[in-house]
């Protein structure tokens, strides 16, 4: 009898409270980010994939000095030097093993030529290990830099009509 009354008390006084708590949450917005469709804004200091920079005329900044490879705690960088047509030293082979890389950014700090940068991209999943061995060709920024088509059109118009570019 005692148990019966106690249970009835629970049903009448305590269960509705629980129901109210959960139903309140039904009308709140989901906290989920629908990831591939809506991406989180990345911090400007985020260290993603590597880029190899160029000079404005398109020659590579990297001189294959090996400081990045020396600074790399994960030993992920391998390079072999060669001499260009102009007689300058540059990398013949420059590989970063992204599976070894811990994205610490030490290479970026070590580089005396400001040639290597860590960008914002973080989606490089693949289905075989070999494709994570990135070479110079994978990392070099394209030349000329690919801006959005609108900017390219403006640049073309400027060139044709001789309008000076104030941003430079």
């Amino acid at each position: 009898m005692k148990e019966l009354l106690k249970t009835i008390g629970h049903v009448v006084f305590k269960m509705p409270v629980g129901f109210v708590v959960t139903i309140k949450h039904l009308f709140k917005k989901p906290v989920t980010r629908d990831y591939p469709k809506h991406k989180m804004p990345m911090s400007p200091r985020y260290r993603g994939r590597h880029y190899l920079e160029r000079y404005d005329d398109g020659t590579e900044r990297c001189v294959c000095c090996g400081l990045c490879a020396a600074a790399c705690p994960a030993d992920a960088i391998y390079m072999e030097p060669e001499e260009s047509d102009k007689g300058e030293r540059r990398a013949q082979l420059y590989e970063i093993n992204l599976l070894r890389c811990i994205f610490c950014g030490f290479c970026e700090e070590a580089c005396p030529e400001e040639a290597i940068f860590l960008g914002q991209e973080y989606e490089f999943s693949d289905d075989n290990r070999n494709s994570f061995l990135w070479t110079k060709e994978d990392m070099l920024v394209p030349h000329p830099r690919q801006d959005n088509p609108f900017k390219r059109i403006i640049r073309r118009v400027r060139k044709v009509y001789g309008i000076p570019d104030k941003t430079k």
Binding site: H25, P30, V31, T32
Partner: peptide
């Protein structure tokens, strides 16, 4: 869907 919304999730989309 309903359980997801009750838990601030989105459910199948």
């Amino acid at each position: 869907k309903v359980v997801a919304r009750l838990q601030h999730r989105m459910g199948p989309t």
